[in-house]
Amino acid sequence: MTTRVLVTLFITIAALCLMFALVRTSRQQYDVKHGFNRTFNPGVRLQLVKSVPVESSLYIAGLSNGNIYFHTSDPYKIFYTDTTLNLLKTIVLPIDTAISPYLTNGFSTAVRYPAVFIFAYNVASILIYNLQDGKQAVVPTPGNYNNAVQISDSAFMLKYFTGDSTDQSFCKLNIFTTQVTKNTQLTEDLSSGGMLLYNEQNAACYYVHNYNNRITIFDTAFNSGRTAHTIDTFTQSQIQYLSKNRTNSDDMLYKPKGGRMLINYLSQLYDGRLYVNSVIKADNETVLTDKNETAIDIYNANMDKYLESFHLPVPHKQHLKSFCIFNRKILATYTNHIALYEFSGLSK
C-alpha cells in the first residue's frame, strides 16, 4: 500500500510541476521588453455607458437592422438588443437535432438580418436560417474549416482544412451555386489560430494571425496577396534550426520552437481602420495593464500606418470574448456581462 501511495503522490507532483512549467513558460514571455512603443492619447478615454449582466458569455454575431446580435455557446440561441442595450431578447433557431451535437464548441454564428449563418466547423457546412420566412438551407463546404467571413450576399471566404500537406488554406464559397474557388498560394503558417476579416472598402480579406504579428491581406479573387505586420514585435524565437549533421539534408531545416506567444487576439475592421487587440505589453507601458485592461492598436486599413492605441477595460477575473466598434461606441462582451463604452475616436 505504501508503494501505491508514494507512486500516486509522485504522479500528482509530477503532473503539477509539468503544468506549472507550461503555464510559467507561457506567461513569463510577456514580462520582458519587446522593443516597441505604443502611442496613447490621454484625451482619448472610454466612458462606460451601460453594463448588462448576462447568464452565459455572449459573442457579437453582427450589427444589422438597427440591432446587435449575439451568439452563445448554445447554437440554438441567439440574442439581440438595440444599440443602447435596452432589452436583451432571445431567438431560438430550429437546428436539426442530428446536427446539433456536432456544433457545440465547433461553431460560430453571423447575423445579417434576416439571414443567420451558422458556421458548423466540424460538419463541413454552413447552416442558413431566414428569420423572416423561416426558410432553412445547408450549404456544404469543401471540408472542415475554422474561420469564415461573408464577403457578399452570395459568397463567403473560408479558412479550411485542405486534407493534404498544406494543412489549411483559404477558399471562396458561393452559397447559391455551391461553387468553390480554392487558393493554393496563401498557406504559410495557417496551422495555429487567427481571425479572418473582410473590408468592403477595398474588397480585401485580412487574416490576423494570433501567434505572430503578421496580417495576410488578399483580394477575394486571390489575384494578389501581401503580408503586413502589426507594431507588436516580439523577442521570442519561434523556430529552431536543425543542424545539417543531424538531419543529413542539404537543405536548411527548421522546426517550431517551444511555446508560442499569443500576440494578437480579437480584431475588427471598421470605417477604414483595423482595430487589433494586442496581448503584448509595449515598452512604454509601465504597469501590467493586461491585468485590468487590454490594448487595442489602430491601423489604417491599408496597413501602411499605425495610428494609435487605447485601452479597453477587462475587469478582474473576466475574459474579453468579443468587441465591436460602431457609431463612436465600443461594445465589449465579457465572461458574465456586456458593456457599452463611449469612444471619442482618434486624437488625430
Binding site: N146, G259, R260
Partner: peptide, 21 residues
C-alpha cells in the same frame, strides 16, 4: 478521426501551441 481539428485546437491553446504537432 478529427486529427486536423484536434491539432488546430491545440494550436490555439496558449500553453501547448508550440507543441501542437
Amino acid at each position: 478521426l478529427q486529427y486536423d481539428t484536434f491539432k488546430y485546437q491545440l494550436g490555439q491553446s496558449p500553453f501547448v501551441t508550440g507543441y501542437a504537432g
